[in-house]
Structure formats: structure tokens, C-alpha cells
């Protein structure tokens, strides 16, 4: 049981209307893995990530979290989740960090971090707050707990979003280009928090355009192109000795 994958995606397909955006993607993240997903714009990185917590409904394929597969059913030829409660239960421990932070503006920093533990997981307020304060310290926001999101810089907002995920003690963390919306001088403060988490052997899937960072923290790199995994492997191989011409070109273009 212990080496059961945290996340397993098997032959994932996703269509939007008639356009197939994912054409059979498989990946496995074991506990402690940091899977970096790279690829050009429109290659399907976000869609793949969003299928993992069912923000997008797969058209075909199988996704399991800690060995538990989402129960799906087919209605008029379209897949849909068969068990909403199961989806909610699994989602509660798959923390997602969005490109645009998506903090809740009507709650303070502390309120954002305690929201899910208290109102989804049923943790007692005092306990949730104590834990929230601890994770806020971790991301360097210990002194901002009573601030409103709108009073924070982009980097601080994203660190708050990461704290919000840490507070649910996630099975795995899903990052969708967490630094793409940030001013260049704010990127590093967020990357260094993610780097810390990676070094703690937290399981994560990280969609990113930061190649140097991916090379540095990833245990496994996936290069998506046009809805397929064109090449994958350890970071030294993907960045040091890419085989596919498209990957070679992609790495040159972003370097």
C-alpha cells in the first residue's frame, strides 16, 4: 500500500466539442515525486492538470488518487462523475494553486487559509487557526494574517494560496504556472517556497515555464506537445539530452 501512486493517470483523453485536446496521456506520481509538466502554449498542460481534480471532466481514461479511481459514468456518450461525494472528498486533499491565485477577497489571509479546514473538512476553529498560523509562518506571511488579499503583493497572494493548500494536508499539490502572473522580481519568493516544499518530499505536479526551476526541483519531467506526451524522463535527460527535435527546439526557444 505504501508505494501506491499518489496520482495515477491512465490514457487520459479530453475533447472540447470536436477538438481533442488530450490524446491519451498517462502519468504516475508516487509519494514524494515532483512531476514537472512543460510544453508550448495550448499543448494541454492546464487541461491535464484540471482533469486530475475533475475541474475538467475527462472524455476517456482513468484517474486514481491514492489508488482510488474516480467513479465515472457515461451519459449520452459523455463521461460524467458518478459520485459527487467521492469527487468532493478526493478534491479536498488535492490542493490546487492557480496562476491567478484565486484567493477569496472577502476573507482575510487567515480566513482564506482556515476556510477549507473548517468548512469542508470539519476541523475545529481553534485547531484550524493554530495550523493556519503555522503554515502562514512557513510561507513567510506570519505577520499578514489579518490583512485582506487585496492588500498583498502578487507574490504574497500566491504564497497565501500555497498556505491555503498546505492547510488541508494535501495528498498532492497541483500547480498551474504559479509564477506566470507575477512581476519578475516577485517570482523568486514564490519559487523558493515551492522549492522548500519539494525538498520536504511533498508530492506535486507542477506545470511551469520556469525551465531552470523545473530542472532543479523535478524528479520527473513530462514534455507535452499537441495533447500527447512527446518525451519524458528525469530532468537531466530532458534538459541535458533531449531526443525529440520538438523538445530540443522548445528548450532552445525558452532558454
Amino acid at each position: 500500500m505504501t508505494d501506491q501512486p499518489a496520482i495515477q493517470v491512465e490514457d487520459l483523453h479530453k475533447r472540447f466539442g470536436t477538438v481533442e485536446v488530450l490524446k491519451g496521456v498517462s502519468l504516475t506520481a508516487r509519494p514524494g515525486d515532483v512531476v514537472a509538466v512543460i510544453g508550448g502554449s495550448g499543448s494541454g498542460k492546464s487541461t491535464m492538470l484540471r482533469c486530475i481534480n475533475l475541474l475538467e471532466t475527462p472524455s476517456a481514461g482513468r484517474i486514481s488518487i491514492k489508488g482510488e479511481a474516480y467513479e465515472m459514468r457515461s451519459v449520452r456518450g459523455e463521461m460524467e462523475p458518478a459520485n459527487r461525494k467521492q469527487v468532493q472528498r478526493i478534491r479536498a486533499h488535492l490542493g490546487m494553486v492557480f496562476q491567478s491565485f484565486n484567493l477569496w477577497p472577502h476573507r482575510t489571509v487567515l480566513g482564506n487559509v482556515t476556510e477549507v479546514p473548517i468548512h469542508v473538512l470539519g476541523v475545529k476553529r481553534a485547531e484550524a487557526e493554530a495550523r493556519a498560523i503555522a503554515v502562514l509562518e512557513r510561507v513567510g506571511l506570519g505577520d499578514k494574517r489579518d490583512a485582506w488579499p487585496a492588500q498583498l503583493s502578487g507574490g504574497q497572494q500566491q504564497r497565501c494560496a500555497i498556505a491555503r493548500v498546505l492547510a488541508v494536508e494535501p495528498t498532492a499539490m497541483l500547480f498551474d504556472e504559479p509564477t506566470s502572473a507575477l512581476d519578475p522580481e516577485l517570482v523568486n519568493e514564490v519559487l523558493s517556497v515551492i522549492r522548500d516544499l519539494a525538498s520536504e518530499k511533498r508530492t506535486m505536479i507542477l506545470v511551469t515555464h520556469e525551465m531552470a526551476f523545473a530542472r532543479d526541483v523535478a524528479t520527473h519531467v513530462i514534455f507535452l506537445r499537441d495533447g500527447r506526451i512527446e518525451e519524458e524522463g528525469p530532468p537531466e535527460q530532458i534538459f541535458g539530452a533531449p531526443r525529440s527535435p520538438h523538445l530540443q527546439q522548445f528548450i532552445r526557444s525558452v532558454a
Binding site: 468532493q88 478534491r91 479536498a92 486533499h93 484565486n102
Partner: peptide, 24 residues
């Protein structure tokens, strides 16, 4: 995105409405 974030954390639809959508 604010509503989606709540959904992504497994919040039930009515709770999303009450705790996120309506207050926002």
C-alpha cells in the same frame, strides 16, 4: 476563479454559494 477555487477544494455546491459566491 474564486468559485472554481472553492470547487477545487471539494466544497459542496450550496456551500460554495453561501460561503464564496454570494459574499463575493
Amino acid at each position: 476563479g474564486q468559485i472554481e477555487a472553492a470547487q477545487a477544494f471539494g466544497m459542496a455546491p450550496l456551500k460554495v454559494l453561501r460561503r464564496v459566491t454570494l459574499p463575493a
